[in-house]
Design a protein around this nucleic acid. Structure first.
Length: 473
RNA sequence: GCUCCCUUCGUCUAGCGGUUAGGACGCUGGCCUCUCACGCCGGUAACAGGGGUUCGAACCCCCUAGGGAGCGCCA
């Protein structure tokens, strides 16, 4: 039997991290076992499903690289099939028409709650003959007694008493099938062998198994993965912390970093923290997934992203960085090779957005000096060093503007002044970068170029001069 | 309310009857160093509580507490 898993989101919003992790686990399980991964869009809720959501989900899947072998299938295109199944259930006496009014159902519920009972449908219409022409819903005849055992790959053996379950609606009065029915039919029709989904569905599972059995199918294996909590441990919701995976992309996270973060949330392999997709596929074990919910921790995601930024192919990072530079109104073609900039800066940023911000100075003059940096380094005592550096740089030919040449000049000036590198390099750095942090001074100068270097030193000298006047007065 | 599920450092986790309870992020001390990062070395901090079982419990059982999910003509 070949393994077949599926990811079945309902298109009522974007793809958030919880859904992405469920999709990842399903994907990994299928790949690990040489099976297939199916994408199915559960859009039976016509009110809330939108085409934008479908697109957002597909875009998220693509960005993460969770490629599926079949689909996307849309449940709205399979209504005929669901209705045929429902009719068959009706014909076999495994389902029945119900004409109970909303009012009756509400009262029933209230009474049960008042008696401290679990609200359940009481089977009022079970035995009744109903005229098919009057408005009605169709309910599944759930077994009255016995138990349903869910042998969950993550939770272990969970037992539900049929007496706790009621006769659920499988077709609405408007003729549309409900979730529990369509899921079951699809999973059976699509040959899904392993259902990996959020644990909010655990309570639905016995109902689905009962329907499956009524249909004459053996249930698939189930794995209910715990949900993801927000940074503060509270439930993730649209209002609170639940962000689209696309938002992570736009904030400058790498898909492999998010995937790595997600796979380690609720799962581990010894002390290993970094996993390539290939490693995930071979090492991931669904049975080792934790049972408890886990909190999303942005600090750790940031760390992972920095790791990947640092070690990924600079050419690729440069390509991904380009649009982030564009957002700062910088055209990378107007300055140093972006790949060189990435090599120099990659270890210094947590996200592509940050990488763009700290690299802007390579492409355009900064507006103002960082206050603290200027106050500390652009002082009267730094003036002579900057003047000497400027003079030396001006004499350098463009072809000598190299790492070695620049390093030699800065070191020579430091020696001339009888001081250390820091005393010379820091004022120079602030002059060139605008603040006190950058790659090595030689690399910084090389990438910034001779013209901008001279121009910015002049600006720094003017700053010192102006400040000197103020200080002495 | 009822049913089901969950509970190791702040967070992610290792542990599967005998460990100084390990690792990672964060925070923090130091080293490296022209700065910031990176890297390296060190520190900080946990078995929810109570009963059992056992020579011995983070690990097995029970209870309590806390958290979550479900109980829709939503998925």
């Amino acid at each position: 039997m070949t393994v077949r898993t599926r990811f079945a989101p309902s298109p009522t919003g974007y793809l958030h991290v919880g859904g992405a992790r469920t999709a990842l686990f399903s994907y990994l399980f299928a790949r690990k076992h040489g099976g297939q991964f199916v994408l199915r869009i559960e859009d039976t809720d016509l009110e809330r499903s939108t085409a934008e959501s479908v697109n957002a989900i597909l875009e998220g899947m693509t960005w993460l690289g969770l490629d599926y072998d079949e689909g996307p299938f849309y449940q709205t295109q399979r209504f005929d099939r669901y209705n045929a199944v429902i009719d068959a259930l009706l014909a076999k006496g495994l389902a029945y028409r119900c004409v109970c009014s909303k009012e009756r159902l509400e009262k029933l519920r209230e009474d049960q709650m008042a008696q401290r009972l679990k609200p359940r449908y009481d089977g009022h219409c079970r035995g009744h003959e109903v005229d098919p022409n009057t408005p009605h819903v169709i309910r599944f005849k759930n077994p009255a007694d016995g138990v349903v055992v869910v042998d969950d790959m993550i939770r272990g053996r969970v037992v539900f008493a049929n007496a706790e379950l009621d006769d659920l609606v499988i077709r609405r009065s408007d003729g549309a099938p409900t979730y529990n029915l369509s899921v079951v039919v699809d999973d059976a029709d699509m040959g899904i062998t392993h259902v990996i989904r959020g644990d909010d569905h655990l309570n639905n599972t016995p109902r689905q198994i009962n329907i499956l059995r009524a249909l004459g199918h053996e249930p698939p294996r189930y794995a209910h993965v715990p949900m993801i909590l927000g940074d503060d441990g509270a439930r993730l919701s649209k209002r609170h912390g639940a962000v689209s995976v696309i938002a992570y992309r736009d904030q400058g996270y790498l898909p492999e970093a998010l995937l790595n973060y997600l796979v380690r949330l609720g799962w581990s392999h010894g002390d290993q923290e970094l996993f390539s997709l290939e490693e995930m596929i071979t090492l991931f074990e669904i049975g080792d997934v934790n049972k408890a919910a886990s909190a999303f921790n942005t600090d750790k995601l940031d760390w992972l992203n920095q790791q990947y930024l640092h070690h990924a192919d600079p050419a690729r990072i440069a390509r991904l960085l380009s649009p982030h530079m564009g957002r700062l109104d910088i055209d990378p073609a107007t300055g140093p090779d972006l790949i060189e900039v990435v090599k120099a800066q990659a270890a210094r940023a947590k996200t592509l957005t940050e990488l763009a911000e700290i690299s802007a100075f390579f492409y355009r003059d900064f507006e103002t000096f960082d206050e603290a940096s200027a106050k500390k380094h652009l002082r009267l005592v730094a003036r002579e060093g900057l003047e000497r550096l400027r003079a030396a740089f001006e004499l350098m030919a463009y072809e000598d503007w190299t790492l070695e040449g620049l390093k030699h000049v800065v070191e020579a000036i430091a020696e001339e002044l009888g001081t250390n590198m820091g005393k010379v390099a820091q004022p120079l750095r602030v002059a060139i970068v605008g603040r006190a942090a950058s790659p090595g001074i030689d690399e910084t100068l090389r990438l910034v170029g001779k013209d901008a270097t001279l121009r910015r030193i002049d600006k720094a000298l003017a700053y010192i001069a102006a400040r000197g006047v103020n200080e002495s007065s």
